[in-house]
Design a protein around this nucleic acid. Structure first.
Length: 604
DNA sequence: CCCCCCCC
């Protein structure tokens, strides 16, 4: 049975803040409870927060687990009754309550019984009993439920005398910032500074910039507008550490934030920013790497951190933005990691132009955006950070692995199965059921969305499956029968006979549902095994034979790559599913795919 | 008060 550090809970409950930081480390406690705090927003991307109860065998107190430790909960590393040693904690006073945040810990033992019969420590006049911490903790995560804004008198944190103290003010952990406390100073490193951006919309125009601020407890985004840009933009330098105070703490709109923080800072006219040269306590960067194999689990538009070896550096290219019509340089990298997956990652703008590494370095990416084009892709966004050959353990491990055996590995691609990563290609790893296609409202946005599905033809609208087309290569326009010939308006030419091309609408079904798919020439060729000219000729000559051909086509199953897009026709808006590829089932190919699945890391 | 982050 473990020996707990009796007395620590009482001290945590009574000691003034400046002492708590010093007495914090090295104490052994038991976790009596780990509970997820109700999410702040309805957003599904809101970061989980865990409230824990720690016991020293005599007393217990409540605390919050820093979100950077959430993995310990998710992985089952810590549970009820786990005994841990606290390596680092912070305490801050929010109004009249104290909030203890466990910043780091390590496990001593699991599967223990509850040790002793701990009770709540006696309340003191100066320091409130932990019973009120319930309210404190939820006020951090659920400000909407708090009714006490501006009513209670905040306890002024005691000035720190240690080396990180400053001008009689206490340094707060970023994790502890909340809208209800404004007399704070954080000591944070600028891990990222945006360019100055301008905007102009109905509500007005202006300019702004963002910084990402980080300390050992967490991260927060800061934004400065207009005059504040002039005042502070030059002052902030990436990598440097600053004392920052008198900024406003707002609820972050999670939709737009990739940081693990429910709040963000609005840098105001009177916000104080002062460089701090004593920087050793502030980490350089914080990562929460995901393996490339598990990108499938992330939704499109999520952001994540990854680390990989650059296996391929694509050529500098450019695209023309549909929205702005501007030309933007881009460069695709292929990165691989120990999960034996590869993924394409796109750099934009200057970063694309200037990327010159030719020695296949290890690169860490923070806050890159997940795309789902043909599987999974990653893309740098303005808040992403790319670090080439970072001096971190994961990088050294990866380097060693890759130089040893990684070079010889085959990497599973996220972009497609056997047919290659072509646009709209069939992807066995990303098959959707028809009901899923409809339920997930694919194509309901302004953009076209692509999916792969396997379905059986139930019915083909037989009245009109082809049209007379211009025989000019690549024209395919409908031609008009003049009696004396067929005229193409586009080519301004008349032809003796047209070339029929398929245009067909078919109902397909799988076990989950059905859908109407629109197919063109390629689809007809696959379905009938004949050209549209041939089928048209049959229809003219022998209606019964034509009907038999139609009947034959029903009940056949194909692999489809489809494009879902909203379409307005006769004032009716609905999603249409176009067939971009159709292939007969190839059982050899299907079996090969299953074998690959069995060999892949996630089957082990 | 932005919140765009692009293309196949």
């Amino acid at each position: 049975m473990s020996q707990l550090s009796a007395g620590i809970c009482r001290r945590l409950n009574e000691a003034p803040q400046e002492e708590i930081d010093q007495l914090a480390s090295g104490h052994t406690v038991q976790l009596l409870s780990i509970k997820k705090v109700a999410p702040t927003t309805t957003s599904t991307t809101a970061t989980d927060r865990f409230r824990i109860i720690i016991s020293d065998g005599v007393h217990f107190v409540q605390a919050m687990l820093a979100t950077q430790l959430n993995d310990l909960v998710a992985n089952g590393d810590i549970n009820k009754n786990t005994v841990v040693i606290i390596d680092k904690l912070a305490c801050n006073f929010v109004q009249d309550k104290r909030l203890i945040i466990i910043l780091d810990l390590h496990v001593v033992s699991r599967n223990e019984e509850k040790i002793g019969t701990p009770t709540a420590p006696p309340s003191t006049q100066d320091a409130p009993a932990p019973a009120v911490l319930e309210a404190t903790s939820s006020s951090v995560t659920s400000p909407a439920t708090s009714s006490s804004t501006g009513q209670a008198k905040p306890i002024q944190p005691q000035p720190r005398t240690g080396p990180s103290g400053r001008g009689g003010r206490s340094v707060y952990p970023i994790e502890g910032l909340s809208p209800y406390q404004n007399n704070w100073t954080i000591k944070a490193r600028v891990t990222q500074k945006s360019d100055i951006r301008t905007w102009s919309n109905q509500r007005g125009e202006g300019k702004l910039f963002n910084v990402t601020l980080m300390d050992e407890s967490g991260e927060i985004r800061g934004t400065g507008f207009n005059a504040v840009v002039d005042e502070l933009y030059e002052k902030f330098e990436e990598g440097k550490v600053y004392y920052i105070s008198k900024a406003r703490v707002n609820l972050a709109k999670k939709k737009f934030s990739n940081l693990q923080n429910d709040y963000e800072l609005s840098l105001e006219k009177n916000t104080e920013v002062e460089e701090c040269l004593e920087t050793t306590s502030v980490p350089m960067m914080k990562y929460n790497f995901v393996e490339l194999s598990s990108l499938e689990k992330l939704e499109r538009d999520n952001t994540c951190d990854v680390i990989g070896v650059i296996k391929e550096v694509g050529p500098l290219g450019e695209i023309t933005s549909k929205a702005t019509n501007r030309t933007i340089p881009k460069r695709d990298l292929t990165i691989v990691d120990m999960s034996q997956y590869s993924v394409r990652l796109t750099l934009w703008g200057k970063q694309a132009e200037q990327f010159a590494a030719d020695d296949l370095p290890v690169v860490a990416f923070k806050g890159v955006k997940v795309g789902d084009f043909g599987g999974r892709t990653l893309s740098m966004v303005s808040s992403s950070i790319m670090t080439i050959s970072p001096d971190i353990e994961e990088a050294h491990l990866l380097r060693g692995w890759y130089d040893g055996i990684g070079t010889e590995k085959n990497f599973q691609s996220h972009t497609s199965g056997s047919s290659g990563a072509s646009f709209g290609g069939f992807n066995r790893n990303e098959m959707r059921h028809l009901s899923d296609v409809k339920e997930s409202q694919l194509g309901m946005s302004d953009k076209a969305e692509f999916f792969s599905t396997r379905a059986t033809i139930m019915h083909i609208k037989s009245e009109n499956i082809s049209y007379p087309a211009c025989p000019t290569q690549g024209c395919n326009k409908k031609v008009v029968d003049l009696g004396s010939g067929w005229k193409c308006e586009k080519c301004d030419k008349t032809f003796e006979r047209p070339e029929y091309r398929y245009i067909m609408s078919m109902a397909v079904a799988d076990w989950s549902g059905q859908a109407w798919l629109q197919g063109f020439n390629e689809a007809g060729l696959a379905v009938f095994g004949k050209t549209a000219d041939e089928v048209h000729e049959i229809k003219e000559r022998n209606e019964a034979e034509y009907n038999a051909l139609m009947a034959q086509a029903s009940g056949v199953t194909f692999n489809f790559s489809c494009r879902a897009k909203q379409d307005t026709y006769n004032d009716q808006t609905r999603v249409r599913y176009g067939i971009s590829r159709i292939t007969s089932l190839d059982y050899h190919e299907e079996a090969k795919h299953f074998v690959n699945l069995l060999k892949s890391p996630w089957a082990q």
